[in-house]
Design a protein around this nucleic acid. Structure first.
Lengths: 339, 339
DNA sequence: CTGAAAGCGCTTACAG
DNA sequence: CTGAAAGCGCTTACAG
């Protein structure tokens, strides 16, 4: 069983606990001979420090918390991937919580992470989160905080994002350049910043290129999923017969649109061009393959942890840490759903 | 800042730390009056117990570890979803690690979880894991262990699985019943139990229905992904012109096959029928939609944690816990890639 | 009903 | 170079 302690090593060797502790941590004021002895004994007994005691003493858990709106989601799972890989490299473990897009749950989970005394928190906001008092609390407690993807402008912390507005502008422009004149937009909920920004990019692109913005061509997909993409497409086809392009807030929504168009025998991209956003794996596997905007999930995860790490390190050394905002590059991916 | 301790509450109230501690935990031997007083003061100061100290005293972390081969993967992310939801209900947090199908990493991660003293571990094995000494160690230390999906028969612990052999049998039978006479199988790596079992189910179905088993119709997809599905299909088309059905170990592989067949103008299911396995979201969104076997990922995650919870509880109460093996139901999903 | 005391296993400032 | 001692913040067996 597991109960090897410093005390036991000390007794076996007939020296003090202090010396054992120092030897194991390579303090300079322990003789080489003693160090060697201690290390050998520790190895022999398979000594593993009791992290609970270490945590208590050092006031650090070497654990960070991560809250995402969803887990079963290509983009977020890519982010998770980037985060846990990076964290492991630095000796940190990651506790993952899922808000399921619920503000209430998100708030509870922040409390949970605080009470677990994680060393830092990374979060992508739920769509329903407008109030941000829970994040203020994190900051008041001095816990390093990094937001990514779905952020709030009301909080002054490090942020890892893409330029949603610009990316959406380019996506819309691609449709315009290929000859589309009546372009619908399937947007997300009203609150999330990235939903707003993508909408604004879409609108701006229309205006910049002499196309009239028509609010009746904008449909809201609250949960941004396949089913809603299908529903919005049905509504669109019923209400407008002159549409020749759709820019969807997400690949999933776009794929919903394609499925309806396929069913109805409406040709993509000949009759209607479709533009997605995110570049999920699925975008390349459907027919026709989906043109989209590549959103670097893995990179975003990696950067998020790296930034958090810097903030945690600064805190430990009692240095100031100036929040940074990093804007990651996106890339237009042109496939067969656009002309 | 956060430094409210029992001691502080005790001093404010002029009573002992012991009494404060007991009052907060509703011990019966504290007067109602004192309890009320203590609770009020705790609330006022926003007292939150220091989990580091609690862990050290109780020797419990209320945290469990989870190791999966991949995160960016519909099936595993569904499992993660089921696990973290269930864990949260019981007040447990989940540390998620990803072995990336590497035995070496998996071993390291087990060590990490042990040294973090998690209360329990859930794991789905990497494809390259044949040696299981690291899991033996977990058991030797008395840490409750649950395996799911990719298990090892060599370890005597609780297991949450599906009947891979039977499910593969039914999938193959569906192809046979629809008239296929030459059915290829795209299998996974040689080591994983579920890869073996699905292969055996395929083989048995052929034999039971008077079709000759031909080993040259079996292709190996080591990493079980889209690209390999494409490659195997190219190989298959080159080597056999009489195939009329493919049973793929996973939807991803099946979708790779469909993409090649689509490109070549080979009709699915008229010329070749395709059967997948897992029922990922993507299976319903491609053209033609994919017939497959529904594998209950969310349920599997939920059950895995529930079983682990029972084992942890038994350990805490120093009761015996007899490992259980739970076999979850699968379901044939018939769509348009089969006749 | 209340509280003094021991102890969980470590780290580290300090003395020698 | 070594070690005695204090302390992190809690829980709980025990005494009164």
């Amino acid at each position: 069983m597991r109960n090897v302690t410093l005390k036991q090593i000390a007794e076996n060797l007939g020296i003090s606990i202090t010396t054992v502790s120092k030897a194991l941590k390579d303090y300079p004021d322990v003789s080489k001979k003693t160090k060697a002895l201690v290390k050998e004994e520790a190895k022999k007994l398979q000594y593993k420090p009791n992290v609970f005691a270490v945590n208590l003493r050092t006031k650090q858990s070497k654990t960070v918390g991560l809250i995402v709106p969803e887990v079963v989601h290509h983009f977020f799972s890519s982010i998770i991937n980037g985060i846990i890989e990076q964290a492991e490299k630095k000796g940190y473990l990651v506790i993952i919580l899922m808000s399921n897009e619920s503000y209430k749950l998100e708030k509870k989970q922040i409390d949970l992470l605080i009470s677990k005394r994680v060393d830092g928190i990374m979060i992508s906001l739920a769509s329903s989160s407008s109030d941000i008092s829970h994040l203020k609390e994190v900051q008041d407690l001095g816990i390093p905080l990094v937001m990514f993807d779905k952020i709030s402008k009301m909080i002054d912390c490090s942020k890892i994002i893409i330029n949603d507005r610009q990316a959406a502008y380019q996506a819309t422009k691609l449709l315009i350049d290929s000859g589309c004149k009546r372009i619908a937009h399937f947007r997300g909920a009203l609150l999330p910043q990235n939903s707003i920004d993508r909408f604004l990019g879409y609108k701006k692109a229309l205006e910049d290129h002499g196309l009239e913005y028509d609010s009746s061509l904008v449909y809201i997909c609250e949960r941004v999923n396949y089913e809603e993409g299908r529903q919005a497409t049905l509504d669109l086809l019923r209400e407008h017969d002159d549409v020749d392009g759709i820019f969807a807030i997400t690949d999933l929504v776009a794929i919903g649109a394609i499925s309806i168009l396929n069913e109805r025998g409406i040709k993509v991209p000949e009759d209607i061009s479709i533009m997605g956003f995110s570049n999920w794996f699925i975008a390349s596997a459907i027919t026709p393959s989906l043109s989209t905007v590549d959103q670097p999930g893995y990179q975003m995860g990696k950067k998020s942890f790296k930034t958090l790490y810097k903030a945690m390190k600064a805190k430990k050394n009692e240095e100031e840490f100036e929040p940074v905002t990093e804007v990651l590059d996106t890339k237009l991916i042109i496939r067969n759903s656009t002309k």
